[in-house]
């Protein structure tokens, strides 16, 4: 009984996270300005990391933790690089 509850709530959570990624993806594609796109790309990284963690809970395998850690590190670095580019790249100082 509790196993079924856990399984279905994890599936529901994964559906919600995918929906959240879809919202962010819409902003990345249609975002009025470049800073909106970078903001939502960064949030998509976090969503992907959370999705992988829920897969880990669903399968009971600890391997997914390392993948989540690496995604959070790489997401930070790429978002910082893009934000720096927005500040210095397009406008001639």
């Amino acid at each position: 009984m509790t196993a079924a509850i856990l399984l279905w709530s994890v599936i529901a959570a994964q559906a919600m996270l995918v929906a959240a990624m879809a919202c962010y993806a819409y902003r990345v594609i249609r975002g009025p300005r470049a800073q909106d796109r970078v903001l939502c790309l960064d949030a998509m990284y976090v969503c992907a990391m959370l999705l992988i963690l829920t897969i880990g809970i669903r399968t009971g395998s600890a391997i997914y933790f390392e993948a989540a850690l690496i995604i959070s590190v790489l997401g930070f670095v790429s978002s910082i690089a893009l934000a720096k580019f927005l500040m210095r790249g397009e406008v001639i100082e």
Binding site: A3, S9, V46, L50
Partner: peptide
């Protein structure tokens, strides 16, 4: 597929509630 059979009931329910809460906040 799921490890939930090996979980005690309180842990399974707590995990379910926390996962749903986190995903809902993100959404």
């Amino acid at each position: 597929m799921t490890p939930a059979e090996n979980l005690p009931a309180w842990a399974a329910l707590l995990t379910a509630v926390l996962v749903l809460l986190g995903a809902a906040l993100t959404l």
